[in-house]
Design a protein around this nucleic acid. Structure first.
Lengths: 152, 152
DNA sequence: ATGCGAATCTGCACGAATTGCAGACAAATG
DNA sequence: CATTTGTCTGCAATTCGTGCAGATTCGCAT
């Protein structure tokens, strides 16, 4: 196939609503909007990026609220937080086991699958209890590889 | 053996001196101090951490200079810059091919070897020119695992 | 050695990302 | 519909890192 099979995005907004209430967290219009934006999001948005998207549909929403909600989702394991790019966190709505390819020129991230990732032989891992392995393939995306000027 | 075989640290200060001059960069006492601190450094220090170490031996050295030198070294490939922990960059004097284990509780990083890392099968990597793969094993170090159990 | 030009050092200001705080406000519950 | 509690917004503060400028020093060629 030419693309990854359909991936599992963050849970349905309705499910997140239940999960929030179950934790004593309230479900506000702002949070519902973010649930919707994240569900089906194929990229790896930053908080600022989601704030921009959210602002289109709800002018006046606060960046602070976006951070708050993303942090809550991450704490509940409904969202992956990536620290792959310098300076900023990226939020990955895809919670299925997967990994990333990163263009070292433009910083673009894309999802990949690495079937053997959880069965890697590791040397030098003493007194450590591994839970999850993440793989990042660094390289150049085709646009950056062909362009003379590797600007975003 | 109970530890990794002797790893290759950043090149000898004398070699870095030659490399800097060859690039038209000057070799100052500040830089020589950082060369020495990095050579044989077993950890993954932050710029602030190296600044603190450097300040002991050279009071008055500027944090700006530490950043400058680390960036120069990274640009020359004499140092790896890691974006694994949130908010800050870590500098890895070990330029040999290796990977990292990260304690998700205390943030500690340690070096590991993953022999198969460069031969991983990757699914979903189209229009991309990979150069280098990095593996991070997340988990708990023994102190954190035995201390207060963070997850109930 | 000596001098000159270019690179560097330091201190400070600035910018981006993220969090802390407080008062107004709204969601859940009975 | 009233109460309780958590949330929202705006702003200040913090942290990490870089841009800038003037004084200084390195390194090469006299």
């Amino acid at each position: 196939m030419s693309r990854l099979a359909k991936v599992a995005f963050v849970r349905q907004p309705a499910e997140l609503t239940v999960a929030f209430r179950a934790k004593g967290l309230k479900v506000t219009p702002q949070r519902q909007l973010l649930f919707r934006l994240l569900h089906g999001h194929e990229g790896h948005p930053t908080a600022e990026g989601l704030f921009a998207e959210a602002s289109e549909q709800m002018p006046g929403i606060s960046l602070r609220t976006v951070y708050q909600t993303l942090n809550d989702l991450a704490a509940m394991g409904e969202l992956q937080v990536l620290h792959i790019t310098p300076g900023t966190s990226r939020f990955d709505p895809n919670v299925e086991s997967h990994h990333h390819a990163k263009c070292v020129s433009c910083g673009q991230l894309r999802d990949i699958h690495v079937p053997q990732a959880q069965q890697l032989e590791v040397v030098g891992l003493h007194d450590f209890h591994p839970s999850h392995t993440s793989v990042v393939v660094n390289g150049l995306c085709t646009p950056c590889a062909t362009a003379t000027d590797p600007i975003q």
